[in-house]
Amino acid sequence: MNLLSLVLAAEDPTQSHHWLFPEIAEILYGSIASVAVFSLLYKVGWPMAKKSLEARTAKIQKEIDDSAAARREADADAANIRKALGDIASERAKILAEADAQAAALLAEGRTRITAEIADLEARATAEIAASRARISDELRAEIARLAASATTDAVRAALDDRTQQDLVDGFIAKVGASR
């Protein structure tokens, strides 16, 4: 049984509805309505949808372009950074070299100065030791002389009894009296 027989059969009001297919008129009206709706949709909705799709496409394209531009900029920045890093490394090496040179110069100068100061201190210490030795020797000699003189004085005082005192006075008288 084909569709036409079915439609014809549907026109028979005595026949009952098919469990699957609607009535012919319903199909017809439905089809017309569908065509009208689809036509209307095509006429009105499609341009809008197309426009929306185009806008979205343009937006996506723009985002892709922006991303590409951002990536290029990032690549450029990365290149600059790499270049700067290279410059920094070079500058760092240069600064380190200069610092090493200055440190070496300072070290050499410091060693020279310290050596000179040590030599000066040694010379001064030697001179002071010699002076101290001489001074101590002089002081010791003076102290020995003082003690010897004191001991001599004490010994002489102890030896000067009355008889000796009188002898000394008589000796003075004799010496002075004989002087002219």
Binding site: L160, Q165, V169, F172, I173, V176, G177
Partner: peptide
């Protein structure tokens, strides 16, 4: 250093006068 007798003083005076 010690006291002189009168005789010693006189002898010293004479000696100094002479000197």
């Amino acid at each position: 250093a010690v006291a002189l007798t009168d005789a010693q003083q006189q002898r010293i005076a004479d000696a100094l006068t002479k000197a």
